[in-house]
């Protein structure tokens, strides 16, 4: 048994302060702004991403801006938006592991998630829910990170099956990560190997409750702890030949 200190990945790492834009209104000389993209601090040279995995001539083809936490001011409107988001969950049809096969009954006539406002989308640009359906190998993790970052916010992650949660039967595999929540933020876990479609639908119901309560803030967590997530990802993905942030 190894201790946590032996691992390079530490669970409790404080989010980098400089990444988060300062609260609007703290500086009286600046015009007060409610929105983070009116704040220009994140455009400074220190905050720019280096894209060092790419060849020199390709680095400026891709964005060098970090993700920004979404801040909202009008709580009533936000509650209404959350209600809308909870009732229109579009799932990214991306299969990782055996869960990808087992999720297919959900869209057939017996369980029929389209009556709940859910459907599969073929591209990350149109999806808001990422279902991690099973074991995640290193090769898949690279594609997961890329797809997750390409999804437009607000976005949520549901980790289905025990393999995505703690490694499952691949606990001693050389090629499978054990905790998906160290690489992308997870909102809801569904245990089981395999969970029944009812269990997955219960997970989606829980996700709806979280969204409507305003607690499914995985996207903001990813933006705030971006350096920590990125360090974990780069530690296991040895051939990092993509931009630091794909969007």
């Amino acid at each position: 048994m190894i201790e946590d200190k032996d691992l390079d990945i530490q669970e409790e790492t404080p989010p980098p302060e400089s990444v988060i834009p300062a609260e609007a209104g703290t500086d009286p000389t600046e015009p007060a702004s409610r929105y983070p993209f009116h704040n220009t601090e994140w455009r400074s040279e220190d905050c720019k991403l280096r894209n060092e995995g790419l060849p020199e001539e390709e680095r400026d083809w891709f964005a060098d801006a970090r993700p920004q936490p979404a801040r909202t001011s009008n709580q009533i409107m936000e509650k209404f938006f959350n209600w809308c988001r909870a009732h229109s969950l579009w799932i990214l049809a991306f299969g990782t592991g055996c869960g990808a096969i087992e999720l297919r009954p959900l869209v057939t006539s017996r369980y029929d998630i389209s009556r709940l406002g859910m459907q599969m989308r073929p591209t990350p640009r149109q999806a808001s829910v990422f279902v991690i359906g099973g074991y995640v190998s290193i090769k898949t993790l690279k594609r997961i990170v890329r797809s997750y970052e390409q999804m437009q916010g607000p976005k949520f992650v549901v980790a289905v099956c025990s393999c995505a949660i703690n490694g499952g039967m691949y606990w001693d595999s050389y090629n499978t990560i054990k905790r998906i929540d160290e690489y992308i933020p997870v909102d809801v876990y569904v245990t089981g190997c395999m969970p029944r479609p009812e269990a997955v639908m219960a997970g989606f119901t829980k996700l709806k409750e979280l969204i409507m309560a305003g607690k499914a803030e995985g996207q903001n967590l990813y933006a705030e702890k971006f350096d920590w997530y990125k360090a974990n990802q780069k530690q296991v993905i040895k051939d990092w030949n993509m931009p630091d942030y794909n969007w």
Binding site: I2, D4, L7, I9, E11, I165, N166, G167, W171, D172, S173, Y174, T176, I177, K178, R179, E182, V236
Partner: peptide
């Protein structure tokens, strides 16, 4: 002679 368990323990964190 490749020890997959030892590799997994040193390279990935376990819950």
């Amino acid at each position: 002679d490749f020890d997959t368990k030892a590799y997994s323990e040193t390279h990935y964190s376990h819950r």
